[in-house]
Design a protein around this nucleic acid. Sequence first.
RNA 1: GGGCGCGUAGCUCAACGGCAGAGCAGUGGCCUUUUAAGCCAUUGGUUCUGGGUUCGAAUCCCAGCGCGCUCACCA
Length: 506
Amino acid sequence: MADYTSLEKIRLEKIEELRAEGIEPYPTRAERTHTSAQAISGFEAAVEGAEVRATLAGRIRATRPMGKLTFAHIEDGAGRIQLFLRVNELGQEQVDFFNRAFDIGDFIQAAGVMMRTRTGEATLLVHEFRMLAKAVSPLPAAKDETLEDGTVVRHAALEDSELRARQRYADLAVNPQTRETFRKRAAVLRSLRAFLDGEGFLEVETPILQPIYGGAAAKPFTTFHNQLKQQLYLRISFELYLKRLLVGNLERVYEIGRDFRNEGVSYKHNPEFTQLEFYWAYADYLQVMDLTERMVSFAAKEVTGSYKVVYQGTEIDFTPPWKRIEMRAGLLEATGVDIYAHADGDSLAAALKAAGKNPPADAPRGKLIDWMLSEFLEPKLVQPTFLYDYPRDISPLAKSRPGDPLTVERFEGYVAGFELCNAFTELNDPLDQESRFIEMGRDYAADDEERHPMDEDYLRAMRYGMPPNGGFGMGVDRLTMLLTDKHSIREVLLFPHLRSGASEEE
RNA sequence: GGGCGCGUAGCUCAACGGCAGAGCAGUGGCCUUUUAAGCCAUUGGUUCUGGGUUCGAAUCCCAGCGCGCUCACCA
């Protein structure tokens, strides 16, 4: 049972008193004729002297009792509005009743006539009011101060990011900017769907519970179907199922949904995250690049109203075309070392040392290139930039460039120094794919969890013939971070994963 | 997983080895145009948890839990 605080005990007593007076603190129905915004705009538009009646419903956010009158602000889905309760209309008993029984956080229904107070605020002069839902626990209510210049300063706002995430309901209830963040998140999803639908892509849904996981290098979550006695995995990507659909003659498909990766958490990683993947028959990675910059800039415009957004104090310009840097040239410029001149790790490491760098010891070539990227190139990619043509060492799933087997047709989009998306010209040779499965199985044999299992059904699909195609994946949470100016993924997830939440540990 | 930092009233924070405090919220009172309303009075604490040092610990030490930053791992 809940352990009530002294504040809660007082409110529980108020509930008992209401019931004792025959008043239901949680009535079944509410009435409302106007939202706060409708009441105010209706009043502003009305001709002088015309009476604007309204019944409002909302949550009490502030009260200012003054003896024979009380001012209050309520908040509903459309904004805030002031209530004016006065002895003249209600009688002393009702004004006292309001002050005695109603608290900040309670839901109230109030009917009356719109009026203007001495300070000019459009206000509902209340003739009738009733309780819609009594709050037992006090909301961490902030107070807003409006300065001379109109800026609003919040005092004692609920700020602790952990508490806000654990009790998102309270965060949403008291912090309008949190509600705004999640409206923008919805707008991001809406804009991506609208864009891809407009390009002729079909939205599909593929299994989250999969007997064989694949499509990315990540550790899966495992689960178990009791009746079928079957080991299942939560998907780590959509790739292998979406590409099966290309075999089925669906030429353009996309899915927006949840991926699950059993890895560490950080400000840009959550164990479950929202991914967008699309696959496009007869397109290659350069066409995907064009589409990507159009899609992301479209989303930026739809969500923020502009191609230019400010992220953590820096202006990011999503206007196409984005900067394109070939990886080899980019690394050569950043480090003075040409990765193509060095076919193995030892040679590349020696060249890096000669260039005054301090590479990790005993690393293979692919690992060194990764290190060069993250150390010298990625941090510089603040404005939207495509890095393209990756060494095959670090891209086992992409198709090689014709006549250049060591380079694959792959690009990653970088913004604000972190990876936003990843795409390549996809493998469609079933025999090549099979040998890569075997190769990856061998590479990871020591580590059961990261080993790529052979997906026989996927190979069977590919053997029926898969058109050449370009594939794309993007972290929707990361795009949302960029468009809402949030540093942490937790700020754009309603209920991010946190340790020791509801469940007891063993 | 490593390093650094933080955890005090419902919320925001002070006190930094010597009686655990303030503002807001709450409670009681005054107040018929307030808006962080004001004035008077007042309630409220496992100082994250568990050990230790000390005459004395919110404060110092150790361990744990949680969060943040960072590195590593990881796309």
